[in-house]
Design a protein around this nucleic acid. Structure first.
Lengths: 339, 339
DNA sequence: CTGAAAGCGCTAACAG
DNA sequence: CTGTTAGCGCTTTCAG
């Protein structure tokens, strides 16, 4: 399957030692400048491509990184990936992407493969299953190898480790505060899947803000959803059909809020006047909702950039674990603007 | 950086040859079953992890693939990626992802890196720049190495090669036909970036359908956009402020249509009665638009699955180049339903 | 049943 | 300025 030409092949052609070719190709000053040129040209002509695998073996460094994510179809994740790519492109790294689909088994399998391929570092947003069942030994194993591991969004069960996150708690607090400021009295929450840090933090921010303003956290006002729009349909209906209807909804992400607005429209309930809405993530389509959706931006792309930079700064010198926490930004649009 | 234990280390511990350890770890029947067990247990205990790089070097096969995409933040791309992952997970492959950001230079750089890392195959959706400037030698070089290359969505300048695509032409034709059937007289098109196959095919389907129904293709009814929602704002305004307003819009993707509906709402123009709309891609949020957006589904996830399967079927036996063309599906929702 | 040796592609130390 | 040699981690003949 592989027709590739090696340094030895070139050496034969020039009737010299492989090391000479190696040096010439690497522009080693000890080699006659003329010879260097000739060899380089020939290499180019025959399409010589350095085999990095051999170097990885030699130098114990593969210039390859692993990224393990529960999914990739949400804007936040793919945008983060683009941020990482941008930084890593310049540093010569290649990124192995692995989608765990929230499964612990798959996550473990992928991590094994990444280790076998000797990635130089690992970025991971843990699968819900791993998180739920407190299964962390597969990752501890990686850390014990003193391989840099950087957690994204979801932490590693409180174990001190490098992390890049948005302050979800603060973002949720800000969103809830904003709804209170708008005069909303009964603020509901579309709660993300339990066990996931992102869901928990957003709920806590919501809860603490209510409490800080002398409000109750009412069980009726909380409905559990997944991160998909579909999952919010039923939840929103239940919310609005209850005896104690909310006059605001803070959703765990934008998708569920867009679905909620859809249901409200169907029910003839006006947004923001009867029900004000704030989402999370600030996906590009948020501003084109009906009405435009207020949302907490978590700077997805920047998370990726920061994670990549953190790795680059860590790879040489071992330092204490660092948590980079980005500030969320509340983007106020019509869906929560009451006059 | 790498504390990893090698087969040699284990051999020392057991005072035997590395080859014995290798065999034991691979469950070679020639090794005493007892010894095998003991060695395997020890390996597990000390966290031995096979170094796949050495095998790649040995077997000329890295179990690693490359995926080069112009971007990853659109649902179509990330969903396709998930489809690929699902298939490749079972076959033991790891996927290197590279986002070219439509730049030829970056694309080339990434392909070089992938080749240097000896990927066993390459999936690519060409950057617009490469496409525009007919720059294909970087990819021809890959093909000449007889490395399997599978084109996704965007073909390789008509050169026969393995491809997985949705039939964009047919999808556009169906969408346009549907608008005609709904009684629309002046069907506008939000045309994607020129030079990109996807844009061209969708335009051609639109054009040919109009012609097939005795309509004219009017320049006034065509506005160029990018694949982002923002880009459609201005385009839609121009369309609706012209002397010859359209009564339907077929957009190159769902994002631009959602933005178009937003502008129409602002202008007080009703959808679908004054202007009917059909998009492309059927993103998850399409059904939650106001009104729900009709769209042509291109089976994004399936494209990824088919591409992965195609690679797996090709890797052993060399066969003639194959084009897998998936049928698009028109999903009719309110945005185009006239009574 | 187990060991020794060669080799995948490359570089770097050491000689010439 | 260039060649020789060893070795990264592993498997696989070929011998014992």
């Amino acid at each position: 399957m592989n027709n590739s030409v090696s340094i030895k092949d070139i050496a034969k052609k020039f009737k010299c030692a492989p090391s000479t070719i190696s040096r010439a190709l690497n522009d080693h000053p000890a080699i006659n400048i003329e010879t260097r040129k000739t060899i380089q040209e020939y290499a180019l002509k025959v399409g010589y491509q350095k085999n990095t695998l051999s170097l990885s073996l030699l130098n114990n460094c593969s210039m390859t990184l692993g990224l393990v994510l529960p999914s990739i179809t949400h804007y936040h994740e793919s945008s983060m990936l683009e941020g990482m790519e941008e930084i890593l492109l310049k540093s010569g790294y290649l990124l192995n992407i692995c989608v765990s689909n929230e499964s612990h088994t798959i996550e473990k399998e992928y991590i094994d493969r990444l280790l076998a391929n000797r990635v130089d570092g690992l970025f991971i947003s843990m699968a819900q299953e791993s998180y739920d069942q407190q299964l962390g030994e597969h990752i501890d194993r990686v850390i014990q190898r003193s391989l840099p591991v950087i957690f994204i969004d979801r932490p590693n069960h409180g174990v001190a480790s490098d992390r890049v996150v948005t302050d979800d708690y603060q973002g949720a607090f800000m969103a809830t505060k904003h709804l209170i400021d708008m005069g909303c009295q009964r603020i509901a929450h579309l709660h993300g899947p339990s066990g996931i840090s992102v869901s928990q933090q957003r709920f806590l921010g919501y809860q603490d803000c209510l409490i800080a303003h002398g409000r109750q956290v009412e069980a009726d006002l909380i409905q559990y959803v997944h991160f998909s729009a579909e999952s919010a349909i039923q939840a929103t209906r239940i919310l609005m059909q209850s005896d104690s209807k909310p006059d605001a909804i803070f959703g765990v992400n934008d998708e569920v809020c867009i679905a909620a607005m859809f249901v409200l429209r169907e029910m003839g309930i006006s947004v923001p006047n009867e029900v004000a809405i704030v989402g999370f993530d600030d996906i590009p389509l948020a501003s084109f909702g009906h009405p435009p959706l207020s949302s907490v931006s978590r700077q997805s792309r920047k998370i990726g950039e920061e994670a990549a930079k953190l790795f680059l700064s860590k790879k040489d010198q071992k330092l204490e674990p660092v948590t980079i926490s980005l500030d969320p930004k509340l983007i106020i649009r019509e869906s929560s603007l009451r006059s």
